[in-house]
Amino acid sequence: MLTHAAIALNRIWALWMPVTFHNVHNFRFAWLVVMGIWLAAHVIGVPPTIADIVISHRPTIISQCFFHEAGEDSYKTAALSINEILNVICFVVIVAAFPLVMWKQKVRAVWKKQITIRLKIQSTDSSTERQSRVLMGILTASILICWGPVIGYLALAAIADYDNLMVVQVLTILFNCQSIADPILIILALPVWRECVNEIVGECLTLRD
């Protein structure tokens, strides 16, 4: 979720502040952002999970990603845990970023078209922008499908004290599927990655024969 939110903010930054984006953003900056995201995820997620297991004395096999509620007033009285609040913030950022990015790209396309007509020059290739829209759409859709129900359940649990083990198990499977589905969808959506995968598969088949 943090990675998706970072990608969404990255696209907003690139479209709404292109000058500062091109001046600041480079490979080193991207690498530092990715490392920071992974570090923040572990700093925020690991200590509460370990404390929850120790305090609640739960078997590790059922720890999963949800904190224990039964028998612990501190977990019952808290409306949302730090992880849940962070997930909600990331979810809102990702969903809100998609229409903002699409609108800005549409405005830029109209502006570029007017410039090419006035200057009587050939329009530049917009394949990169099309791929960006496709990628943004895939990531947003995966978040809505895999995390939307989870966010809804957390809100219902916080407001109405709703608890259903079967629903929790289904939602756990659903948002875990995102980690598998995202790479596959991205490879299928981007031509460059499709070509790389085809070459790798072709070489493997050749070596096997």
Rank of each mutant, 00 (worst) to 15 (best):
T3I: 08
I151V: 15
F67Y: 09
V107I: 10
T77C: 08
M1E: 06
F29W: 11
V34R: 04
W193T: 09
H68L: 00
G36K: 07
P48Y: 15
V101S: 07
P18M: 00
L190P: 00
I121Q: 11
Q105L: 04
T128W: 01
I85N: 08
W38D: 06
I138C: 13
L174V: 07
E195P: 00
T124R: 08
S132K: 06
V197K: 00
G71F: 13
N83M: 11
H4Y: 11
W31Y: 15
R208Y: 11
T124D: 11
I55Q: 14
G137K: 12
W193C: 10
I12P: 03
P47K: 13
F91C: 12
G152A: 15
I50F: 12
A70F: 15
A79G: 08
V43N: 09
G137Q: 07
P47L: 13
W111Q: 15
S132C: 05
P48R: 13
H25L: 06
T128D: 03
E203R: 12
L205T: 03
A41C: 12
I53V: 13
I61H: 07
A158I: 11
I186T: 06
V170T: 14
L119I: 01
Q114K: 14
A30H: 03
I138G: 09
V101P: 01
A6Q: 00
W38K: 10
Q169N: 06
N83W: 11
N87Q: 04
V46S: 06
C204E: 05
A155W: 15
F67A: 07
H68R: 00
Q178M: 11
F66L: 02
L188V: 05
V19I: 02
G45W: 12
S132I: 01
V150G: 09
V88E: 14
F67N: 07
I138A: 14
C196T: 03
A157E: 10
L190T: 01
N26R: 03
T206Y: 06
F67W: 02
S126Y: 00
M17S: 08
L2T: 08
L100V: 13
R133T: 05
Q105E: 12
C204T: 05
I200E: 02
V167Q: 10
L86G: 15
K104T: 06
F98E: 08
I187N: 01
Q122V: 14
A97Y: 03
A157I: 03
F175A: 06
Q64W: 04
I143Q: 14
P149E: 10
Q64P: 00
C196L: 09
S74F: 13
I115T: 04
Q114T: 01
A97G: 02
T77I: 13
G45H: 11
I53E: 04
W103E: 10
W38R: 13
